[in-house]
């Protein structure tokens, strides 16, 4: 059975003189490395340069609002049930009179917390949600945290900012290719 076309027949024939003195091979090797020395570097200087990881990348969560800025979540708890890491917890509350501009449904999540140390970014919460309220952003990570109280994200961090809404132009690789969404988003620092 042949898996690739790259297999080579092993030969045990005697090495030629040039092969035995090894120097031509060294010279070839030195040529290869020096060629790479002058080649373009592939490093992306990460915090300075960020690339688009594709439309299906699962980054940090966002609690979506609808077009009028109302929270979509109805605190049904399906995301918490679906979560394999048991990272989500919430406290439900009933919408009061006059709060119709804040919450879309009659029941809402007064507290909605995700423990970012437990979360494995599987995206099952996103799939479970019947209200299309929770999404994993494709463009942002959970930033590095250094303090314990930065680990659990509440609604203040999760809820969508209406001035800077999270919109996804493409939902699949193919769509991204059609719309020609390019890889590198930011420019590198001028340093080498």
């Amino acid at each position: 059975m042949q898996l690739t076309n790259r297999s080579k027949q092993v030969s045990n024939k005697q090495m030629t003189f040039a092969e035995r003195i090894y120097l031509p091979a060294i010279a070839t090797g030195l040529g290869i490395t020096i060629k790479h020395f002058f080649q373009k570097k592939v490093t992306l200087q990460y915090p300075d340069v960020k690339i688009n990881l594709g439309p299906v990348f699962r980054g940090r969560h966002v609690l979506k609002r609808d077009d009028q800025g109302r929270e979509r979540c109805t605190a049904c708890g399906l995301c918490a049930v679906a979560c394999p890491a048991e990272a989500i917890s919430m406290v439900a509350a009933e919408r009061q009179k006059g709060e119709e501009t804040l919450y879309r449904e009659e029941k809402y999540a007064a507290v909605y917390e995700i423990n970012m140390l437990r979360c494995i970014f599987c995206g099952l919460c996103e799939e479970a949600c019947p209200k299309q309220a929770i999404y994993l952003r494709h463009d942002e990570f959970v930033p590095v945290f250094t303090e314990r109280d930065q680990v659990i994200w509440g609604k203040d961090l999760l809820a969508e900012n209406m001035n800077n809404r999270y919109l996804r132009k493409a939902w699949t690789k193919e769509e991204a290719r059609e719309q020609d969404i390019k890889g590198v988003e930011a420019q590198p620092r001028t340093q080498l």
């Binding site: 490395t33 020096i34 790479h36 020395f37 080649q39 373009k40 570097k41 592939v42 490093t43 200087q45 340093q191 080498l192």
Partner: peptide, 14 residues
């Protein structure tokens, strides 16, 4: 450079 990387560049210029 030979491995197509950039190398140390954080401490001071270059």
């Amino acid at each position: 450079f030979m491995q197509d990387r950039i190398g140390p560049n954080r401490a001071g210029p270059l």
